[in-house]
Amino acid sequence: MQLHHVTTVPAPTDEVWRALGEIEDLAPCLPGAAVDHVDRADHDTVYGSMTVKVGPITVAYRGRAVVDERDDAHHRMLVHASGREQRGAGTAQATLVVAVHEQSPGTTELDVDTDLTITGRPAQFGRGVMADIGDRVIAEFADRLSAQLASATAAPAAVPATEEAPAATTEAKVAAEVEADATVENEAEPAPPPKLGSDEALDLGPILLPVVRRAALLAAFALALAIAERQLRRAIARRRR
Rank of each mutant, 00 (worst) to 15 (best):
Q93W: 02
A219P: 00
Q124M: 12
I138G: 05
E185L: 15
M130V: 06
A147V: 00
T162D: 01
P166H: 13
D44W: 10
D72G: 02
Q2W: 11
E189C: 06
D199M: 03
L78H: 12
V159H: 04
T45L: 06
G88W: 01
E69F: 03
G21L: 07
G197H: 04
R76W: 04
A147N: 09
Q86S: 12
R230G: 15
I23T: 15
T119A: 07
L204W: 07
A216L: 15
A27E: 00
V52A: 11
P210G: 12
H74N: 15
A41V: 04
V66S: 01
H43D: 09
A175I: 14
L20R: 05
E109L: 07
C29V: 01
D39C: 09
E22V: 05
G205T: 15
P10Q: 11
R40H: 14
D111C: 03
T45F: 04
R121V: 11
A131H: 11
A201F: 12
P206E: 06
V54T: 07
A188T: 09
E140Q: 15
P193H: 07
H5Y: 10
A60G: 10
V100R: 01
W17K: 01
E102A: 10
G83E: 08
A176D: 14
A235M: 00
E164M: 10
L116N: 13
V67S: 07
A201W: 11
I236P: 00
L20E: 06
R76A: 04
E85A: 02
G205H: 13
R76Y: 07
H4E: 09
K53E: 09
D39A: 08
K173C: 10
V212Q: 14
D14I: 00
D68F: 03
V212D: 10
A152G: 08
H4G: 02
P28N: 04
A237W: 11
H4C: 01
V52I: 13
V67N: 13
P193R: 09
L223M: 13
D181E: 13
T51F: 08
H74Y: 11
Q231W: 08
Y47R: 10
S49C: 04
P122R: 01
A147P: 00
A237D: 14
T58N: 07
G120H: 05
E179L: 14
A142T: 02
A180L: 13
A92I: 14
T114F: 01
L116C: 09
T58L: 03
R18Y: 02
A182W: 13
A94H: 06
L217F: 12
T8N: 09
V97L: 08
V16Y: 02
L217Q: 11
F125D: 00
E200Q: 12
P156Q: 05
L3T: 08
A155T: 14
P192A: 05
H43L: 10
E179Q: 15
T13F: 00
E200R: 13
V46F: 03
F141V: 04
E22H: 14
R127Y: 02
D203N: 15
P56H: 01
Q231T: 11
I138T: 15
A161V: 08
D111G: 03
Y61N: 06
I133K: 04
D199V: 00
A182P: 01
M130P: 00
T13I: 03
M77Y: 00
T91L: 12
H5P: 01
T51N: 09
A152N: 14
G128V: 05
L145Y: 04
G32Q: 10
D44N: 15
R62Y: 06
L225A: 15
F221N: 04
A89F: 05
K53H: 08
Q103L: 11
A34N: 03
R18F: 01
A123V: 09
